[in-house]
């Protein structure tokens, strides 16, 4: 194939502009995300303080199950975002969906129990504490979101919309995971609804805002 003279010129200028590139290694991205999550947890410990039972080394069952789900979903989404930085035809980014389906059991359980009237209606009406969890979950996820957006801007995500959604889910999960170490309400209503809400809101914000930051 005969090359367009303009293409020759372009190639010459690109070669002239070449600088060594630091390759985006996935383990480096995962390490950065883990550091962001650890820093978020440290902020909760310093600013809000851990709940008394955890400080005493005792763990509630619902706390472990719910927070485990949020953590695994956060890690799955963050790992997918990291992988999206290195595009490749043939890559599939579906694994996080199964974890998301599992995590949906929390709000679903809360809704089913409420709808069936199995137990008396608890105080789920929006209160200051509920708003604390909602606001803190979204805000505490910002550091994780910043790390993931930084990664995507260096990488080459071919689906900015999906990448944005996953950044939102990952950051919301890490945010509420960290804040749960402070929140002492262990009811399925509170955890299922008010700890899931920050993930949903972060996902919407990520889907709306992140694509314009990472499009190339």
């Amino acid at each position: 194939m005969i090359m367009d003279p303009d293409t020759d010129t372009l190639i010459a200028s690109l070669v002239d502009d070449l600088r060594p590139a630091r390759v985006l290694r996935r383990r480096y991205g995962l390490g950065l995300t883990a550091a962001a999550a650890a820093a978020t947890l440290a902020v909760v410990a310093i600013v809000f303080g851990f709940r008394s039972d955890i400080s005493a080394g005792r763990f509630d069952t619902l706390f472990l199950i719910a927070n485990g789900l949020f953590l695994i979903l956060g890690v799955a989404c963050a790992a997918t975002v990291i992988a999206m930085g290195n595009p490749q035809v043939g890559s599939r980014h579906f694994g996080w969906r199964w974890v998301a389906a599992a995590a949906c059991l929390l709000p679903l359980s809360a809704i089913i129990i409420l709808a069936s009237g199995t137990e008396a209606l608890p105080g789920i009406i929006m209160s200051v504490h509920e708003m604390d969890c909602l606001f803190a979950g979204v805000t505490l996820g910002l550091l994780t979101a910043a790390v993931l957006v930084f990664w995507l801007r260096r990488g080459a995500p071919t689906s900015p919309e999906r990448a944005g959604l996953l950044v939102g889910v990952a950051s919301g999960c890490i945010g509420i995971f960290a804040f749960a170490f402070h929140c002492s309400t262990d009811t399925i209503y509170h955890v299922g609804l008010w700890h899931s809400a920050p993930v949903l809101i972060s996902a919407l914000l990520g889907r709306l805002l992140v694509p314009r930051l990472v499009r190339w």
Partner: peptide, 9 residues
Amino acid sequence: HGKLASYDP
């Protein structure tokens, strides 16, 4: 050129 770093050798 802009995304050189995104290729994993």
